[in-house]
Design a protein around this nucleic acid. Structure first.
Lengths: 247, 247
DNA sequence: ACGATTTTTTTGGTCATACCAAAATTGAAA
DNA sequence: TTTCAATTTTGGTATGACCAAAAAAATCGT
C-alpha cells in the first residue's frame, strides 16, 4: 500500500527512491578517497570544520559520517585526536565484530560454541599442514615448538609461545583470513585462558601434546595430526572447565 | 550541564589509559538493558528526547550512542524510524563485518581469498558430514539434493536449491556459527555468482557434482567427499573466472 | 642555533535551540 | 469497524557557542 504521495514536490532534490541520510554522501565520498589512496593510510582525516564547508553540510552530519567510517574501521578515532585513516585489512574486519562477540560470549554456552569452532577449524588446519606444509613451514613449526619447550618453566612465556605455535598453522594456507581469525580467537577467549592456573607440570603436558601434533605433521599423517590436535584442545577445555567453571 | 568540572570531581576517572566519551556511559547502560532483556528484542528504543533527559545529556550524545549501538548490531536503525532493539546473534556479528568485507573484496585477489576460505571450510564440513552425519542429516541432504535435481531446468530455482544444499553441511555440526558464516559467504559472493551465465546444461554439471558429494557422504567416505567438494568448487571458480574475469 | 618551554591557534567533544518532514497517534467521519 | 484526515511525536539537520585538549607557533634559556 504505497502512500499516494504526489504533489508537494516544490522542494528540490529527492530523486532517490531509498531513504538516505545526508551523511551517506559524505561516507561514500570519503570511502572512495580512502580506497583510491588519495587519503593515504596513516594520514589523518581533514578537520571537521573543513569537511563541513567542503560538503556544505553541518558539523552534525560530518561527525556522524566520521563515526560511521570509524565503525567500519576505515578510520581510527581516539577521543580527542584527529581521526587516522586506516585502509581495512582482514584483521580490522574481525575487530569490527569484537563487540558483538563479547555479548555472545556472555550468553550461556557462548564460549563453548566459539571454542568448538576453533577446534573444528584448527583440526582442519593441522590436517592441511600435514598434507601441504612446505619445508619452510616445517621449519617454522620446529622453531615454534622449540621456543615452546624452552619456556616450560616460565608460564607467562609459555602462554605466548603456545599461542605462537598454534599461529603457525593459521599461516600455512597463506590466506590472510586465517591469521586474522586466529587473532580473533585468542582475543575473545583470552579471558578464559588467563584465568586458568598454570604450572610447569601443566605446561609440560601441553608441550607434549604440541609435540605430538608436530610429529604427526612431520610424518605427513593428517589423521594423526588431527587427532592429536583435537585431543589437545579438548583436554585443555576439560581442564579449564574443571578448574573454574560455574555455569 | 557541561560546565567546568568542580573541585569535587577528584574521585572521577582517568587513572586508566582513559579518554572516554560521554556516549560511552549511555552505550554501556543500554547494552546492559538489551542483554538483560529489559529492552526486549523487537521492541524499539526510547525516544531520543527521553534518553537525553534520563541520562542528562544532550541529544548529540544520545544520537552518537545510538549510532554506536547500531554499528554493533544491537539496534537496527532505518533512516526515519525508531531504532529497533536487536539481541545479537551470530548472524548479526557477520553482518557487522559486511561493510569491511565489501571493501576487501574490491581489492585485487580479494574474492579469490575469500573463496579459498570457503573451499577450505566447506571441505572440512563435508568431511565432517561423512564422518558424523546422523540419519536426519542424511535425510536433509537427500531432500536438498532432490530439490536441486528437480530445479535443473529452472536456473533461478536451481541457484536457490544449490545454496540450500550447501547450507545443509553448515548445519550438521549444530553450531550456530557455521550457518552464519554460510550466510556471509553467499551474501558477499552473490554478486559474482549472479553474473555467471546459467543454463540447464551447466546446472546438470553442478548437480552431478552435488550428487557425488552426497554419495560420498552416504558411503561415509570423508576423503572422497572432500575431494568431490573441492573439485566442485574449484570447477565453479574456473567457470566464473573464464566467463567474465578481467583482473 | 637549538632544544625546551610557554603562548596561541586549531580542533574535537558537548550543549542548547530551532525547524522540517516523515512517522506514529489520535480522532472524526463513513 | 473501517477509513482517512488532523495532530502530535520523533528523527534528521542546521546554527552557534563554549570548553579542554591537542597541535602549532612563538618565546626563552643556555
Amino acid at each position: 500500500m504505497q502512500t499516494s504521495l504526489g504533489a508537494e514536490d516544490a522542494l528540490a532534490d529527492d530523486l532517490e527512491p531509498a531513504a538516505l541520510r545526508a551523511a551517506d554522501t559524505v561516507v561514500r565520498e570519503l570511502e572512495i578517497e580512502i580506497a583510491s589512496g588519495r587519503l593515504a593510510d596513516g594520514e589523518h582525516l581533514p578537520a571537521e570544520r573543513e569537511l563541513m564547508s567542503r560538503f556544505g553540510i553541518s558539523r552534525t552530519v560530518v561527525r556522524e559520517a566520521i563515526a560511521r567510517l570509524a565503525s567500519q574501521g576505515l578510520v581510527e578515532s581516539r577521543p580527542r585526536f584527529r581521526p587516522v585513516v586506516r585502509r581495512p585489512g582482514y584483521d580490522t574486519a574481525l575487530s569490527a565484530v569484537g563487540g558483538v562477540v563479547a555479548h555472545l560470549l556472555r550468553e550461556p554456552g557462548g564460549v563453548k560454541t566459539l571454542y568448538d569452532v576453533r577446534i573444528f577449524l584448527e583440526a582442519a588446519l593441522v590436517r592441511n599442514a600435514a598434507l601441504h606444509a612446505r619445508k619452510d613451514d616445517i621449519a617454522a613449526l620446529r622453531e615454534a615448538i622449540e621456543a615452546n619447550r624452552l619456556a616450560i618453566d616460565d608460564s607467562e612465556r609459555f602462554y605466548a609461545t603456545d599461542v605462537a605455535f598454534h599461529a603457525v598453522f593459521y599461516r600455512i594456507p597463506r590466506n590472510p583470513v586465517f591469521p586474522a581469525v586466529h587473532i580473533g580467537f585468542t582475543e575473545w577467549l583470552s579471558d578464559h585462558w588467563r584465568r586458568m592456573p598454570r604450572s610447569p607440570e601443566r605446561n609440560r603436558v601441553n608441550f607434549s601434546m604440541h609435540k605430538a601434533i608436530y610429529d604427526a605433521v612431520v610424518e605427513r599423517d593428517p589423521d594423526a595430526a588431527e587427532k592429536a590436535l583435537q585431543s589437545h584442545l579438548h583436554a585443555a577445555w576439560e581442564y579449564v572447565r574443571g578448574t573454574f567453571e560455574t555455569a
